[in-house]
Design a protein around this nucleic acid. Structure first.
Lengths: 218, 218
DNA sequence: GTCTATAATAGGATAGAC
DNA sequence: GTCTATCCTATTATAGAC
């Protein structure tokens, strides 16, 4: 529409401002809970007036939407790195699920917004959902690789395996955040069950005679 | 202190009024979400003014507290009935976990308050927690019976088994309520994985050579 | 882009009459 | 126990000056 160079600079500055707002909003959620986020508090911490925030976000729910998207995008990136490019192994499955849960319990400001539905009027837009959908697709693809590598049974129901995997993951996250929120990942009352729940998942969907974690007894 | 008879009647009437308020509050939460509960809306639906509610509840959080306690008390009762007095069997384990999850997804107004932490300033009182603690004790006792009956391994870590059981239960509930809230229990995307997750739990904590659900293959 | 000012509303909670 | 009246605070959001 007009000269591109200055527009780009403006847009970059604008994007930086938006990121600043999101940073502060995360701080507020960490202190007051996801439902305790208010435009006024964000503005107060930034040293500006509430109306100024409406330059960047049309509404409070648009702010939640951006936070939802940002959280999933960060988690997606973490999971990409954790996946790496190596061969699939049992240890990698445990590592990936651990990375997932570790990020979630380590980000109690994001996690409730991403995994629960704590905000009455808010539901994420398709755009905000995109990284979550992408992570789901990556995970499903990973599960297929697990099957091809013999880690999962040849006749495994990949969709079912995916759902049960998300069930145990969100179960650990939910129990830890709801019942023992202060505890670190390494020593959490519920995060410490991760080796067991992943082992039981692997044993259930795995090949018929693969040795399970507790198969060697007395 | 004074004449017992009229006081009892007054207290009974008061208790009835309190239950009425709770009924309406549950309706509001069902419509607006747990975080969408407001004193004004409850009063409006009851045809009274907000100040009148403060006769029964000192604060909004006291209302949440009563709702939290009521939810766990109802669930505790459901679980008692589901347990019955019969012998422990694999089928009973599945039935009990199904009852638990069925109640939760069937009461989306209560469940987020009970299993998540959606309300910023609120944390349940010891009194409100009591039925949840009692259900936990009952469950732990049930798991011991399962061990004694040979359903679980003799050397099973009961506390670990309890935590993994709650993990898979809250996982199913959370995934179902957060991602597919409208679906009924019987055909839910995530509730339908219950037979699998209970089977994997049983296989993991069960005796070494007990036949698992999918051990008979081709 | 940020401000002042203000709307318009709603929130929880209390005092005191009836 | 319920009401009216009110408080105080906070909310999201908009209009218009700078």
């Amino acid at each position: 529409m007009s000269a591109p160079a200055p527009l780009d600079r403006r847009q970059r500055r604008r994007q930086e401002s938006i990121e600043q707002v999101l940073d502060v909003a995360v701080d507020v959620m960490a202190d007051q809970g996801v439902g305790g986020l208010t435009v006024g508090e964000v503005a107060r911490r930034m040293g500006i007036r509430p109306p100024s925030l409406y330059v960047y976000f049309d509404s409070k729910n648009a702010l939640y939407d951006a936070l939802f998207e940002r959280g999933w995008r960060e988690l997606l990136e973490v999971m990409r790195e954790a996946r790496g490019t190596g061969e699939v192994t049992t240890e990698l499955v445990v590592d990936l699920q651990s990375s997932f849960v570790r990020w979630a319990v380590g980000h109690p400001a994001y996690a409730p917004l991403m995994f629960w539905r704590p905000v009455p009027g808010f539901s994420p837009s398709q755009r905000a959902y995109a990284p979550a959908v992408e992570l789901a697709a990556l995970t499903l693809q990973f599960l297929a690789e697990c099957r091809d590598a013999g880690l999962l049974a040849a006749e495994v129901d990949l969709d079912l395996a995916f759902r049960t995997l998300t069930v145990v993951g969100s179960g650990v996250i939910t129990q830890q955040l709801a019942n023992a929120p202060g505890e670190p990942f390494e020593t959490g009352t519920f995060t410490s069950t991760l080796p067991d729940v992943v082992a039981m998942w692997l044993a259930h969907h795995g090949g018929p005679r693969l040795p399970s974690v507790r198969s060697r007894r007395d």
